[in-house]
């Protein structure tokens, strides 16, 4: 197998001048395979951006080792930078440029020829439905269109590894899917994409693998299916109607929702519960747990101590 695109071992970061001295990253280890889409999820302040910035050679780490495309971020920055591109969180395109200039000049800046840059600019704008506004000044674009312009810029590049820190924040649902398609296209061209997102459906739909980060540490890692397999109760059953709660307890973990109950259960219990509910004419829906369920469980454990969904210490 080819060497992974990114290998992080025990990466820690304490920001200089941080009062508490609490690390933003605390011994984080990750392996991002080449040519795939890798998702980073976690709550605000978990350390996603810190990790992305270290891997993109924008920020120095305190300890640990991190290699991008086989090169050390501490000593071989130049070789890494030649092959990466990044949309930083909260970055904004230069407002006095026209939409197409943002993309075109970025490609020229990276050293592309005019002909190549022009062709790739057109394709990227088309891919993200920005052709209509290509002559418009960035200062006149809506926030979502600006964000899309930045995505177009990086996805149009020839970088082997692309860092997208919350690329779709503020995008409407259709625009988000266009970005997904563009990201998938880039990955089909054997580019590696590391993206962070708060949209868990996005992480699930896009990522070949993903990592859940919590307080600078890796809490879960794997393919979406693996994450689901690690969960103690892989099914969720929603019941609406008047049901005595104590009758449900034997099936799994029960919580009350508006007008009914949510039960997390193993497969046999979930089936049995469904049959039981149907016999009583209750309305129900049933399916595998979503990434959001896993997220809420793992991350919410500190908030809600008795919702045991994911297995403790399941991480290898």
């Amino acid at each position: 197998m080819a060497e992974p695109a990114i290998v992080a071992e025990g990466v820690s970061k304490v920001y200089p001048g941080s009062r508490s001295g609490a690390p933003a990253l605390d011994g984080l280890s990750l392996e991002v395979p080449r040519g795939g889409i890798y998702g980073l999820i976690g709550r605000n302040g978990a350390g996603k951006t810190t990790f992305v910035r270290i891997a993109a050679t924008q920020l120095a780490m305190t300890s640990g080792t991190l290699r991008v495309l086989g090169q050390d971020v501490r000593t071989e920055e130049r070789a890494i930078r030649a092959r990466i591109a990044c949309v930083p969180q909260e970055s904004r395109p230069l407002y006095f440029l026209r939409t197409e200039e943002v993309v075109y000049l970025y490609l020229k800046m990276r050293g592309m020829t005019s002909a190549d840059a022009r062709r790739r600019t057109h394709d990227a704008l088309e891919e993200l439905s920005l052709l209509e506004v290509r002559k418009r000044l960035v200062s006149r674009l809506s926030g979502g269109l600006r964000r899309r312009t930045l995505c177009a810029m990086v996805l149009a590049s020839d970088a082997d590894v692309m860092f997208l820190d919350e690329p779709t924040t503020g995008l409407d649902p259709l625009a988000r899917r266009e970005v997904w398609e563009a990201v998938r296209r880039a990955s089909r061209e054997h580019r590696t994409i590391l993206l962070t997102t708060h949209y868990l459906d996005e992480a699930e739909a896009l990522s070949g693998r993903l990592a859940l980060i919590e307080r600078g540490q890796r809490r879960l890692e794997g393919t979406p299916a693996e994450l689901r397999a690690r969960v103690r109760y892989p099914y969720r059953v929603t019941l609406w109607g008047d049901v005595p709660r104590d009758q449900l307890a034997s099936y799994g973990a029960v919580s009350e929702i508006e007008g009914g109950f949510l039960v997390f259960a193993r497969e046999p219990e979930a089936r049995e519960l469904a049959r039981w509910a149907l016999e009583r004419g209750l309305r129900l829906s049933m399916g595998p747990v979503s990434l959001e369920d896993i997220f809420l469980e793992v991350v919410g454990r500190s908030i809600d101590a008795d919702a045991p969904l994911a297995e403790e210490g399941a991480e290898a």
Partner: peptide, 17 residues
């Protein structure tokens, strides 16, 4: 550019020295 637009970060993570 560095602070408000994060443009320096965009340039750092690129072949431009």
């Amino acid at each position: 550019y560095r602070h408000d637009l994060k443009f320096q970060d965009v340039v750092v993570a690129s072949p431009v020295e």
